[in-house]
């Protein structure tokens, strides 16, 4: 993964394949444009339970329950949703329950919508303050390998890890 991509290649196809390889069985999300293709692939996959949330902190708690029950899951969230998760993340830290989160950025590279900027600029500091390990990635070809590394750190070393996917990759928010 990660080189000689065809013109129609999108990182979500490799990440979805990686989810299968890793045995991911639950995916929780609040919809987001930057993650839409990955969410669609997961929804179309009968071996992954896709759960739409009303707020992202629900997904943190769901991932704790999934791990207690012997399954691995992934939380998919826009950067704005990170702010909704902070208190619930204490459960993962205190119990050392693995968390793998994919965070698509807004309020960052080339943002044209000013109301996205405050939370976008707070996203990484907030994750780090909540003791979530952050892997930032700003090239599409590097997303799959970054998710793979984050998954190992999460599930094999029992840590909360977020892959923060730059707005440079999604191009979201480029028009006001």
């Amino acid at each position: 993964m990660g080189n000689k991509k065809s013109k129609n290649w999108h990182w979500s196809q490799d990440v979805h394949a990686l989810f299968k390889k890793l045995g991911i069985e639950q995916v929780a999300y609040v919809p987001d444009g930057g993650l839409a293709k990955l969410i669609n692939r997961c929804q179309a996959d009968a071996s992954i339970r896709s759960v739409v949330l009303t707020t992202e902190e629900e997904g943190v708690a769901q991932m704790a329950g999934a791990w207690l029950g012997g399954q691995k899951g992934v939380l998919l969230t826009q950067s704005g949703g990170v702010g909704n998760c902070i208190n619930m993340l204490s459960m993962m830290q205190e119990c050392r329950i693995p968390l793998l989160a994919l965070v698509s950025m807004r309020g960052e590279w080339g943002e044209c919508f000013p109301w996205q900027v405050p939370m976008g600029q707070s996203t990484i500091p907030a994750l780090e303050a909540a003791k979530v390990i952050v892997h930032h990635v700003d090239q599409a070809e590097k997303v799959p390998e970054t998710v793979h590394a984050a998954a190992r750190l999460a599930f094999d070393s029992y840590r909360a890890v977020a892959v923060v996917i730059s707005q440079r990759i999604s191009g979201s928010g480029s028009r006001g």
């Binding site: 708690a61 704790a64 207690l68 459960m91």
Partner: peptide, 22 residues
């Protein structure tokens, strides 16, 4: 028994993740 000592608001969704897994 899994007791939540924190994470207020998370009991039902912890239950959901567990119920889907089991």
């Amino acid at each position: 028994n899994f007791y939540l000592w924190g994470g207020m608001g998370g009991a039902v969704l912890t239950g959901l993740g567990l119920a889907l897994a089991q």
